[in-house]
Write a protein that binds this DNA or RNA. Sequence first.
DNA 1: CTGAAAGCGCTAACAG
DNA 2: CTGTTAGCGCTTTCAG
Lengths: 344, 344
Amino acid sequence: MAITIKDVAKLASVAPSTVSRVIANNPRISEKTKVRVREAMVELGYHPNFIARSLASQSTQVIGLVLPNSSDVFFQNPFFSTVLRGLSEGAHEKQYALQMSTGKTEEQIYQDVVNMVQGGRVDGIILLYSRTDDKILKYLRDREFPFVVIGRPYEWEEEITHVDNDNYRASREATEYLINLGHNKISFIGGNKNLVMTMERLQGYQEALKSAGLPIVPDYIRHDEFLLERGQEAIQGLLLLETPPTALLVTDELMAIGVVNTLTKLEVEVPANMSIVSFNNAFFSELARPQLTSIDINIFDLGYQAAKSLIQMLLNPKEPVKRIIVPHQLIERVSCTNVQSIKK
Amino acid sequence: MAITIKDVAKLASVAPSTVSRVIANNPRISEKTKVRVREAMVELGYHPNFIARSLASQSTQVIGLVLPNSSDVFFQNPFFSTVLRGLSEGAHEKQYALQMSTGKTEEQIYQDVVNMVQGGRVDGIILLYSRTDDKILKYLRDREFPFVVIGRPYEWEEEITHVDNDNYRASREATEYLINLGHNKISFIGGNKNLVMTMERLQGYQEALKSAGLPIVPDYIRHDEFLLERGQEAIQGLLLLETPPTALLVTDELMAIGVVNTLTKLEVEVPANMSIVSFNNAFFSELARPQLTSIDINIFDLGYQAAKSLIQMLLNPKEPVKRIIVPHQLIERVSCTNVQSIKK
DNA sequence: CTGAAAGCGCTAACAG
DNA sequence: CTGTTAGCGCTTTCAG
């Protein structure tokens, strides 16, 4: 078919193994023959065959990405493209390629992963989410296959390298920010309950209320998919309460947009009649009217660090387990106001 | 290492080739031995090694995706995630995996492609864009490597299978829609000039004006990156003109959002003082305030059809060249109004 | 410093 | 219907 190592070897009058060593830049080959071999490679337009190399060396230079099973939802969220951009950059630096799972149900994705792993298609895997009772995580762990989790693992946290934000603290700070503005009826609109991230943000919220001596009102706590529509529904429910909240902590941008749009439609002014803090800050918060005060969790870095960590693990099999906490920060915009101004 | 075909063969007391045939479900193998072999596979927990298979069969079941060189911009745009979702679904149906280019400059991406192709990593490639003077497209064509383009190829259109919208017509219709509302000062805010899509949309716009006997005013035509910020700049320039337009055709959603936000800031009301038609309709148009009338180009289908077409080419090497036109439609929302209402 | 040879795990003629 | 035998293109001992 194409030009192989043998062709090069013949032209340079060396053995194929020598050519292989030149490619690997093996120091035991003399400069002279290296030059000669390289010339031959150029002359023939030789390009190494990765598949053959993979088979022989048992490594592919490919990283597998696993999306959550609610991938349809995930795709819509700007979180996805941003984290992917970070992954892409991290992988590119070390010449790794990225391969994605394409399944939609948990079972399909599980099969994707088995194919990637047992089929020898990838050297390592990055889970772009962390949730409870994850069959896939368990599978990877049982096989001791190299992988990294974006988010805090629900189990075996100490044994799994992961990249995460301090979601608990971020959420607590956001809540305290609202409390400091005088709010005492603060609602929590969270995402999928099975995501560890959601659980932690809820805890941070509750802890902040507790510390401030405020009650935790179950009716103020909502959970749903990270979707525009879900945000809309959530806020409608809250407004029907006897004493609706005066402030909202929304743990996802897309939901936040849904919330804001719905409020606008219902002529509840933000921030005059409702303060909002959003999460993620993947540029939707800026885009919303009014622009949303938001916790920036540096999504790009989550991806970038995850890629880098995994590659380090691959390069050095006894690399210690790591936890990388990407910093967050509250970005103040104009969606929050002092509670005084609300009382009419 | 892991369990191989030989282990299975031994346990089932057959030759390795027989096992291979069972995997391929070769009809020439008796049901009896098939069953026996399958039992052995299950008992051992055998899973085929894709890399080995790829090397032997010279096919990988992987599709390479090539993003445009302005990938940072591309990642932000909802076009990306939507088309990727379509690609993912199309690939999954036929058990193909997706691998992405990770380079950022044209040269890096070119290298990614060479690696994918000459390295034997992928069976075919999908270009997620179409632009002028594309080195990568030329490379693929010269090597006669199977590939599909999303968008209309700038050259060799007749020889390259591609999936596209009728951008010319879509744009003409959108412009006519505005003309029918009585507008005669219509501006065109387009994206990157090197994209074929942009060129076609511009032509459609111009043709509509011409047919209606309206002049083509160069000052009304703007081009820029598909970015929020660019949309903002474009509209500011337009408002400074002696006779600003009364209607805008914006060929990208993200830009459209930038335009709307800027107009709001400048207290130019939409649609009262400015009508807007946007493109793509990947749910940003719905999200904007006011909601934007938009040409829905069915981005998901672009991806889905591209994946399906490429796979067909791979399955049947003499599959004829195809052009697939995904239909578009104008979705009326509330960002346009009759020109009468503008005159104060 | 370089060559010969074995083998990574699977497929695909070619026999029988 | 099934086994034997070569590879696919590269890496990697093991010699020398």
